[in-house]
């Protein structure tokens, strides 16, 4: 299975993102669920998704170190699972 890092992702249109001191809060108006980003770098990754060919490129752009990538991969996969992120069409 392709890693979420190699996918072309974007924040779903029904999702609103609010920066917070600890990272950010995400709210999905369709599922009415909240998600918490517990790291400001993850917010930066999300903000870079639209301008990046892959999630991995967005992580690179946000300065995520190689050693930290697996944790970001898990966090992004969870956000895809909960429909906060979705495939972006080219």
């Amino acid at each position: 299975m392709t890693s979420v890092l190699d996918r072309r992702l974007g924040v779903a249109p029904q999702v609103s993102v609010r920066p917070e001191r600890f990272g950010a809060l995400l709210y999905h108006f369709g599922t009415r669920r909240l998600s918490f980003l517990k790291d400001p770098r993850l917010l930066e990754v999300l903000e870079r998704l639209d301008g990046s060919a892959t999630a991995r490129a967005a992580c690179d752009g946000a300065g995520v170190a190689e050693a930290a990538l697996p944790a970001f991969e898990r966090a992004l996969a969870r956000l895809v699972e909960t429909d906060m992120l979705q495939e972006r069409r080219p």
Binding site: E20, D39, A71
Partner: peptide
């Protein structure tokens, strides 16, 4: 990602 402070503490603040 290391989380030094539990989320609930952030909310309390």
């Amino acid at each position: 990602m290391s989380v030094a402070t539990p989320l609930v503490e952030h909310f309390a603040a």
